[in-house]
């Protein structure tokens, strides 16, 4: 928890948030434009009040290598209805002042490189995005990119996985900002019955190696998952469970409230 206070979190500070006072963070992910742009606007306006401390928006991509069926379907649907990176950035820009929490983008490498690293970072900053998660950009390639992000005042949020060694976790976390996204499972995004065995011990170790706050994601969909990990991390990320409701045209507010309550 103490790490939350010394976050190089331009992400939080930029929004005038006292992260420490807010407690452990709940990061809620949804796909921009799925099932439609109206739903995304509603999410941006309502998720913070339901308990989201960070909002993570997935930018639709044709080949999301790290994603399971729920998020893949959402991306395909959004792309079919014409959602583009520019529309996602415009959504953030339009809603930024209505959203009292940090907004981070989850975006695949090709979309970033296609626009050009510098122009992409510039466009993201301009629209009010606070952080970037790029699931298929691996350290040490990320080093240079993360430095550019830091210079532009946007957090490059690095990822670590179950097999990432302690030294590498330290290096990865040193290169980034905001928080370390710890991928709980070997696998793709999606709800799972159980978190892997030994997750608590593993998270404690990751937290000890990381200079950034650690947020745990992948496979977290229910209160009991949060209860199992909350002691060892600075926050959790929930994606597929929320997107699954959105895909069905349902509202995720109650789920998010329930998830937030499981921290206390």
């Amino acid at each position: 928890m103490d790490k939350m206070t010394k976050i190089k979190f331009s992400v939080f500070e930029g929004c005038g948030i006292n992260a420490a006072a807010r407690g452990k963070a709940l990061n809620i992910f949804f796909v921009a434009g799925a099932p439609n742009m109206d739903a995304s606007v509603q999410c941006l306006r309502k998720l913070p009040a339901s308990g989201a401390d960070i909002i993570e928006i997935g930018v639709p991509y044709s080949d999301p290598l790290a994603d399971g069926p729920v998020i893949r379907d959402a991306y395909a649907r959004a792309l079919a209805s014409g959602v583009t990176l520019n529309k996602v950035l415009a959504l953030v820009a339009a809603e930024r002042r209505n959203v009292p929490v940090p907004i981070v983008l989850m975006i695949y490498s090709n979309l970033v490189l296609h626009r050009g690293e510098d122009s992409f970072i510039g466009d993201a900053v301009k629209s009010g995005v606070n952080g970037l998660i790029i699931p298929d950009m691996m350290y040490p390639y990320t080093k240079n990119f993360a430095a550019k992000c830091r210079a532009a005042g946007i957090a490059f949020i690095p990822l670590a996985a179950p097999a990432t060694e302690s030294v590498r976790i330290r290096d990865i976390s040193l290169s980034g900002d905001g928080f370390l996204y710890y991928v709980n499972v070997e696998g793709i995004t999606g709800a799972r019955e159980n978190l892997p065995k030994g997750i608590a011990r593993r998270l404690a170790k990751v937290s000890a190696s990381s200079v950034l706050p650690v947020m745990s994601g992948f496979g977290i969909s229910r209160s009991e998952h949060i209860k199992a990990v909350k002691k060892y991390v600075d926050g959790v990320i929930v994606g597929s469970a929320v997107q699954n409701l959105l895909n069905k045209g349902e509202k995720p507010w109650a789920l998010v409230e329930e998830l937030k309550c499981s921290f206390s």
Binding site: M138, A161, V183
Partner: peptide
Amino acid sequence: GGQFVPETLYKP
């Protein structure tokens, strides 16, 4: 070339 994959594949 290079390696543009999720961190999970770093070790393998």
